[in-house]
């Protein structure tokens, strides 16, 4: 393999979009209105589009004849390195939008830095994805405001979702060994530097939505090391079902 760290680094980015795209895809046909169904599907499609570009690049780096689908669907659970946040389930629409919002705020900051990467492929994927992520952020922030400052019931549900997901936000800013190596080479993004801006931006939106910023300082971690919440296994059993049941076939 040309660069083990680069490969791992790409997976770290791509897995987030894959798992979140999969979660958003689950909702198609079950949302609160046709209009929101169409919007959520668009987000899912954007994320899968990004995923394919990343995995195609990763496959090239790996150079072992694996395809984008092999990488997406044929790893073991412990080999997925997405953050815990994105694998959390669609408990209700408040959770779905809160998860999206907490990820989008990070994602956009991250992509804006990745665009400056000296790896031209990553930089190009970032440039394209920034536009998508900006729209996602606008969409999810709007829903945070609507639900936070909507009715009493929606306020309570949104606050619950934010409280429930808050514990997964800190992990976004943890550096892995691959991260560090890639930052050193001018390829990767130093996520530790995004943390302050992130919490400031997120805090502003939450306040604007009359929501409280959770005070808890207890955070979960492990996704980036492949130690996931129990939810991921079920998600993967769907994602991998066909590839596992019918190995080595083309579709």
């Amino acid at each position: 393999m040309k660069s083990k760290n680069l490969y791992k680094y790409i997976l770290g980015i791509a897995d987030n979009s894959l798992i979140l795209g999969q979660r958003m895809g689950e909702l198609c046909g079950h949302g609160p209105s046709l209009e929101t169904d169409i919007a959520c599907t668009n987000i899912s499609l954007d994320l899968f589009g990004q995923v394919r570009s990343y995995y195609q690049y990763a496959a090239k780096i790996a150079g072992d004849n694996r395809t984008e689908d092999d990488i997406a669907m044929l790893r073991k659970e412990r080999e997925y390195v997405n953050v815990l946040l994105v694998e959390q389930p669609n408990t209700n629409f408040a959770y779905t939008m809160a998860r999206q919002f907490l990820f989008d705020a990070y994602h956009l900051l991250f992509l804006q830095e990745l665009e400056k990467s000296n790896d031209l492929t990553l930089s190009a994927i970032a440039t394209k994805s920034i536009k998508e992520a900006s729209y996602h952020q606008r969409f999810s922030s709007d829903w945070i405001k609507r639900l936070g400052d909507g009715t009493e019931e929606s306020h309570q549900k949104m606050q619950e979702a934010i409280n429930g997901l808050w514990t997964y936000t800190d992990e976004l800013f943890h550096q892995t060994e691959a991260d560090k190596a890639m930052v050193e080479q001018g390829v990767g993004v130093d996520v530790t530097k995004l943390k302050e801006v992130y919490y400031k931006q997120v805090g502003q939106i939450l306040e604007g939505a009359t929501l409280e910023i959770p005070e808890s300082k207890w955070f979960q971690k492990g996704g980036k090391q492949g130690i996931h919440t129990e939810h991921l296994g079920y998600l993967l059993s769907d994602l991998q079902y066909m590839q596992r049941t019918y190995p080595n076939m083309s579709w």
Partner: peptide, 10 residues
């Protein structure tokens, strides 16, 4: 605003 967003997606 929501009408614009929905129109964009639809």
């Amino acid at each position: 605003e929501m009408a614009l967003e929905n129109a964009r997606d639809v």
